[in-house]
């Protein structure tokens, strides 16, 4: 744990409670500990919604342990195991740069550099001075076909390069939220510039 200020208390709000009711209904009595992952996710999302920083404070983990009737350390173990749970406060936009081999071969170094330049962040897991951005290095996010990937909070921005990264961050700074997906405009993960195979097939109009 690095140094940060813990909130004094945590309670799930009405929106989270509505979801928790649905989640808990999935598990039989006595097996409610299985709900620890969804509850951690709900806690992190509520923190993002309420405070603008999506992370899981210790008090939230303790609350989850209490609700699920499990020792707090068991919740800490799960929460720290999954890197998707932030154990310390993050910025409004959590920039998760994939630097695994395919993204790296396709220029993730330039994406990282552009992020650093635009946000002023020096190391990983650091938050910019304005509190807008946190940079995290992540392993393969499973979208190699459109590498390199920059994940912002829950959304993938694909086919990134230095220029598009700078443009994306500038837009986020202005309060805009650009279209999610490939920034080059390719359709899902189809070939760049349109189809390259099966071009001779003609499908009759329906």
């Amino acid at each position: 744990m690095t140094e940060h200020t813990e909130p004094a208390s945590f309670a799930f709000d009405d929106e989270s409670e509505a979801r928790i009711t649905k989640v808990m209904a999935k598990y039989p009595a006595g097996k409610q500990a299985s709900a620890v992952l969804p509850l951690l996710d709900l806690a992190q999302r509520q923190m993002g919604r309420v405070t603008g920083s999506a992370w899981v404070p210790k008090v939230a983990m303790d609350e989850i342990a209490r609700r699920l009737d499990m020792p707090p350390i068991r919740v800490y173990e799960v929460a720290t195991f999954y890197l998707m749970f932030n154990m310390q406060p993050v910025g409004t936009y959590h920039l998760q740069v994939c630097t695994t081999t395919p993204c790296w071969l396709r220029g993730s170094d330039q994406v990282v550099e552009a992020c650093r330049k635009a946000t002023g962040i020096k190391g990983w897991k650091e938050t910019s001075a304005d509190g807008l951005f946190t940079m995290t290095e992540v392993e393969c996010v499973g979208a190699c076909v459109n590498a390199p990937i920059l994940q912002v909070n829950d959304d993938f921005f694909e086919d990134m390069d230095a220029a598009s990264t700078e443009a994306l961050l500038a837009a986020l700074r202005r309060g805009e939220y650009p279209k999610v997906g490939s920034v080059t405009g390719r359709q899902t993960s189809a070939p760049e510039g349109g189809p390259t195979t099966l071009t001779t097939l003609n499908f009759p109009a329906e």
């Binding site: 210790k58 020792p71 350390i73 068991r74 800490y76 173990e77 720290t80 890197l83």
Partner: peptide, 19 residues
């Protein structure tokens, strides 16, 4: 008294009480 656990993972895994 379940107070000890293994937090984090892989190279970063540590045995302790977390708090």
């Amino acid at each position: 008294t379940p107070e000890l656990g293994a937090t984090a993972r892989g190279e970063g895994m540590e045995v302790g009480t977390y708090v």
